[in-house]
Design a protein around this nucleic acid. Structure first.
Length: 583
RNA sequence: GCGCCCGUAGCUCAGCUGGAUAGAGUAUCGGCCUCCGAAGCCGAGGGUCGUGGGUUCGAAUCCCGCCGGGCGCACCA
């Protein structure tokens, strides 16, 4: 349990007590009351804005209200001291007994520490990657992949029932291009000289084995046949192969999806027409002509009537086409059908992770969800900004057209998945990210994951020493949970406990905001608290974790070290990163 | 022209959805290894939070106007 929700509950209980005693008017609305750590640790361990929020309701001045509340809080066993400060903050200093209980709690819960029941098992759908099945994943996909996966893990830790979903765009013109490109490679495999890959087809080498496999399976049966005969076959085969490749790329990053949804399957099952009729029945469809876009010259613009969705009724800037002028469905139409499908599968909470170049699409999709679910469905679109690949401070050039773009796989092989994942998550998703391949490979302090991992490695080192020093002792977490924590009295020790005790709250905050990067910052702070304590022991031998002559003290301190290791480990687990025990 | 994102220390970025004296890393300078791992620690300097208003007990945070940057703007996916 997040200790600050616990403290908030204590405050609300105290207020009720005061109401019953007639010291405060009854019926105070505590919705805006919060208990949180003060920015400055000098102000204590927990602060509440209760007096500022409630004084008005009670017809008092904030300070006056604070006096009454403070007196009541003072009597709580977990509270050592209460102070009133500033405009009416009530600051509490929590007792050592409280912190000792927190430490015991961490060790007792083990790997489950930090888990929250905030989600109450509610379903959440996180759709991410959804790269077109036309080639291997490139480096640009990696951020969304890592972000989506970490967000999903974070939500799981916060108590949600999460589904990781990949939407396969296998219905558009691009997969026909894929089929034709594979056909060319098929001819090549049968000995034909195909020369240079024509403009408009995919030139990548990764299609060579696809053509070869088709040649081996089917021989020359498709040679000299019209496209209409082989297109479907080649398309299906190539898409399957591309998805195998993508799945392998994702596996290299440690990512596994629960559900792969096919756009083509939606189209073929008639779901697109269904969604259009669904909206038509609501009176949200009409035949109309869209204005030419302003400010951007579209040379071949011609006004023609199309089937349009009244997106403007739901906050979009213009109405959106569901059918092209040739009568075919637009991508937006199938995306609507897809999101309605997700909703009908029970996902009222949907998260889509997109690249920042799709920012212009957010409004229309949000509008669509409102229309499709009568406002009951929620969609949060997380945009991942571009990653600037650097090499020793110089920007790296990527060229997709030349077929020599940097693949995700190349990058994983070069720097390792854990490093890649951590770096991608150290920045807010909507901020640009510089990724310097050389600096990261150096494993220097330019790489933030090493700082955190180093703390873990040091903790493991202490654990090894303890096993040598106290061979007769049970050093399991459950045994250490029973250590005498009252022996931990140094400021830095308590500061570390305080830091560790904040983990569950950090998980909740990050999960609620859909922002995994907060955990990266938290872990950095945690590592700093640990390194600080370590170095205090270097300067002052009294503070060393282990002393052979003082087994009880050593056990208490080892417990603290183990707790720190545990928190670092579970925090990194959210990122899908496994820390090294030795570096 | 419209929409979205972003302007915080020299540089790269946090800032807990409105809280107290705005913080890290890096860089610069000064200290700390006979001692649990110095890939670390401690300290110093460095800021009109782009700018002008507004909302209120209180604004880096919310609202509006400018300035400066990025992305996207029929029927493509």
């Amino acid at each position: 349990m997040n200790i600050f929700t616990q403290i908030r509950n204590n405050i609300i209980d105290a207020l009720e007590h005061l109401e019953q005693a007639g010291k405060l008017p009854s019926g105070l609305n505590t919705a805006r009351l919060v208990a949180e750590p003060p920015r400055d640790a000098a102000h204590g361990d927990a602060a509440t804005n209760a007096a500022m929020v409630l004084a008005g309701q009670a017809g008092m001045k904030p300070r006056e209200f604070a006096e009454i509340l403070a007196a009541e809080l003072q009597s709580l066993p977990i509270v050592d001291a209460v102070e009133i400060a500033g405009p009416g903050f009530v600051n509490m200093r929590l007792s050592k007994v409280f912190w000792d209980a927190c430490l015991k709690d961490i060790l007792s819960q083990g790997e489950k520490y930090g888990d929250s029941d905030m989600g109450k098992g509610r379903k959440k759908n996180v759709e991410f990657v959804s790269a077109n099945p036309t080639g291997p994943m490139h480096i640009g996909h990696s951020r969304g992949a890592v972000f989506g996966d970490a967000l999903a893990s974070l939500l799981e830790k916060a108590g949600y029932d999460v589904t990781r979903e990949y939407y396969i765009n296998d219905a558009g013109a691009q997969v026909d291009v894929l089929a034709r490109s594979a056909y060319l490679r098929y001819k090549e495999a049968l000995g034909e000289d195909i020369g240079k890959i024509p403009e408009g087809l995919y030139p990548g080498d990764y299609l060579i084995p696809v053509g070869k496999a088709l040649a081996e399976r089917d021989g020359d049966k498709w040679l000299d046949k019209p496209e209409s005969e082989w297109l479907k076959e080649f398309r299906t085969f190539a898409i399957d192969r591309m998805m195998d490749m993508i799945r392998a790329d994702l596996a290299a990053l440690g990512i596994k999806f629960d559900v792969f949804s096919s756009e083509r399957a939606l189209v073929e099952s008639g779901k697109i027409d269904e969604v259009i009729e669904f909206l038509r029945a609501k009176g949200l469809i009409y035949e109309g002509v869209l204005e030419p876009p302003k400010g951007k010259i579209v040379e071949d613009y011609e006004p023609h009537p199309q089937t349009l969705f009244k997106a403007t009724l739901f906050g979009d800037d213009v109405d959106r086409a569901l059918k092209k002028s040739n009568g075919f469905q637009t991508y937006f139409a199938s995306d609507m059908a897809y999101h309605l499908d997700k909703y009908r599968r029970g996902f009222t909470d949907m998260i889509d992770v997109w690249g920042a170049d799709h920012a212009g699409y957010v409004k229309r999709m949000t509008a669509a969800i409102k229309a499709l679910t009568d406002g009951k469905g929620k969609l949060d679109v997380k945009l991942c900004q571009m990653v600037n690949l650097m090499c020793d401070g110089e920007p790296m050039k990527m060229s997709k057209r030349a077929g020599r773009f940097v693949t995700l796989r190349d990058m994983v092989d070069a720097v390792g998945k854990d490093v890649m994942r951590f770096i991608m998550l150290t920045r807010k998703n909507d901020a640009h990210l510089d990724f310097d391949v050389e600096k990261v490979k150096e494993q220097s302090k330019d790489n933030p994951v090493f700082y955190v991992n180093y703390a873990y490695a040091r903790a493991c080192s202490v654990r090894r020493r303890a096993a040598e020093m106290f061979p007769d002792r049970d050093l399991s977490l459950s045994a250490l949970a029973g250590a005498d924590f009252s022996l931990l009295t140094d400021e830095a020790e308590i500061a570390l406990i305080r830091q560790l005790a904040d983990f569950p709250r950090q998980i909740e905050i990050a999960a609620a905001a859909h922002e995994p990067h907060r955990i990266a910052y938290y872990l950095n702070d945690t590592a700093a608290a640990f390194h600080g304590l370590w170095n205090k022991g270097r300067d002052n031998t009294e503070l060393r974790f282990l002393e052979s002559g003082k087994p009880e003290l050593s056990m208490a301190r080892l417990a603290l070290v183990e707790a720190a290791a545990l928190v670092v480990q579970s925090g990194l687990a959210v990122f899908g990163v496994v820390p090294a025990q030795e570096m």
